[in-house]
Amino acid sequence: MEGMTKIVKTVARLVIGFILLYGASIVIYGHITPGGGFAGGVFISIAYVLIMLAFSKKVAMRKLSNFAASLSDNLGAFSFFIIGLLGSIFSGYFLYNFINHGTPFRLVSAGTIPLSNIAIGVKVGASLYAILVALSIYGRVLTEKEEE
């Protein structure tokens, strides 16, 4: 049996959903409550790292493959840059908060801040997961069985 013992697997199966939800809520409510893109992104990456540790590398790669992690890392960074560029197009200053600010303490408020939070959250979550993938897959010479 791959991965850790049955106890660890059962607990991980129960907990992973809550970790992902908590990370997503920290990212989305980053402009109202403490937290933000970076902290929430690390939460999301930790959920995938838990899958990788508790089950196996294969299961984690099926959920979020090496290529998908790298792609969402690039897309997150690129969309943050695009938000900045749109500010420069619409108002003349790079990274200007060009969307209507709305009333404070609402979910849809603060203009571009929640959008940039989501972009940074996707970027950080994918990239920290990609570091662990790179360390645990690329960091050693493949054995004969895995080369097939």
């Binding site: 402009h31 409550t33 960074a77 303490f105």
Partner: peptide, 25 residues
């Protein structure tokens, strides 16, 4: 000025967004 209730978010993603872009890079 920014509409964000969390003052930290208003600083790192509006006033000092360049620094956050640098951190992402």
């Amino acid at each position: 000025e920014t509409g964000a209730a969390n003052i930290v978010a208003s600083v790192i993603l509006d006033y000092r967004a360049y620094d956050t872009l640098g951190e992402a890079i």
